[in-house]
């Protein structure tokens, strides 16, 4: 039996999904619908945009206004939609390669504008759709099909990247920490400005096999064990900090939002005209 959440927010007729056994994309996608449900948002008013990649196929399964665009460009399309109709709740779903490699420019500029779009990054540290090539978030020394001798690149910290670029909300959680994920999604959607939730995810098929990370269940365990709240991390003794990854809220502030600022320009001009 499908749950009420799935019945209400998923396009059941399009299931089963294309994702591999053990993939965490389903967990993250479902958590998004739980957050939307708990916020009581109008389904007709929600636009979910994506680029290209495994996670970018999620909008096709979701019963909202959904837009599957070109590789990396989801945020640019989303910017057009949000500016054209600021009443819409616009959410972007993106993978690490999509949003931080080919779409990196759009990410930093959407964050800089503080346009009210919620970006959810399914960060599985690999290009899954194309067969396991290293991405901008693949750890140094990890293997990918284009890093057979070990990755010499240094990885991006996507949540911090968004923070530095001007996002007014940025947080990181994992596919294991579902309750926290739902809370972060709600906070991100509620924030009037550019919001980013990076969800550390797993790709057992490509990342896992190449790097001997074990099964999907084992990779979930690793998420549970390796990620620690940034506040708790600061209190850890130095010897226990090695190998830990930070999660938690990196930024949560209020600044003028882009479409609201544009509306002010319109109103000032149109108000000026009516006084003539």
């Amino acid at each position: 039996m499908t749950s009420e959440i799935v019945q209400k927010y998923f396009r059941i007729e399009n299931l089963p999904h294309i994702w591999c056994p053990g993939c965490s994309n389903g967990v993250v996608t479902r958590a998004l619908t739980v957050a939307i449900d708990e916020l009581g948002l109008d389904q007709d008013n929600i636009v979910v945009v994506s680029g290209i990649g495994c996670s970018s196929r999620a909008p096709g399964y979701l019963d909202f206004n959904t837009l599957h665009t070109t590789h990396g460009r989801g945020l640019a399309f989303a910017t057009g939609i949000k500016l054209a109709n600021p009443k819409l709740d616009v959410i972007l779903i993106a993978g690490d390669g999509d949003v931080s490699a080919i779409g990196g420019n759009h990410l930093i500029h959407a964050a800089r504008r503080n346009i009210d779009i919620t970006t959810i990054v399914f960060n599985n540290n690999i290009y899954g759709m194309t067969g396991g090539q290293y991405s901008p978030t693949t750890p140094t020394d990890a293997k990918g099909t284009t890093a057979p001798h070990g990755n010499i690149d240094k990885p991006f910290d996507i949540a911090q990247l968004a923070t530095a670029a001007g996002a007014t909300y940025a947080s990181r959680t994992t596919a294991y920490h579902v309750n926290q994920m739902v809370k972060y999604f709600k906070d991100a959607i509620t924030n009037k400005g550019f919001s980013m939730v990076e969800v550390a995810s797993i790709c057992p098929t490509y990342y896992g096999r190449k790097n001997k990370s074990g099964s999907g269940v084992q990779m979930m365990q690793t998420l549970k064990n390796d990620f620690i709240d940034r506040m708790a991390y600061d209190k850890l003794p130095e010897e226990k900090k090695a190998g830990k990854h930070l999660m938690g809220v990196f930024k949560n502030i209020t600044l003028p939002e882009y479409t609201a600022e544009y509306q002010r320009v319109i109103e000032a001009l149109q108000g000026g005209e009516s006084n003539e």
Partner: peptide, 22 residues
């Protein structure tokens, strides 16, 4: 609405988005 985007690709992408929004 007018928006100067970060590059040419974003320019057309946002314009398509605007059209999709009506």
């Amino acid at each position: 609405k007018f928006i100067q985007m970060e590059d040419e690709i974003a320019g057309i992408a946002a314009a398509i988005g605007g059209s999709i929004a009506g």
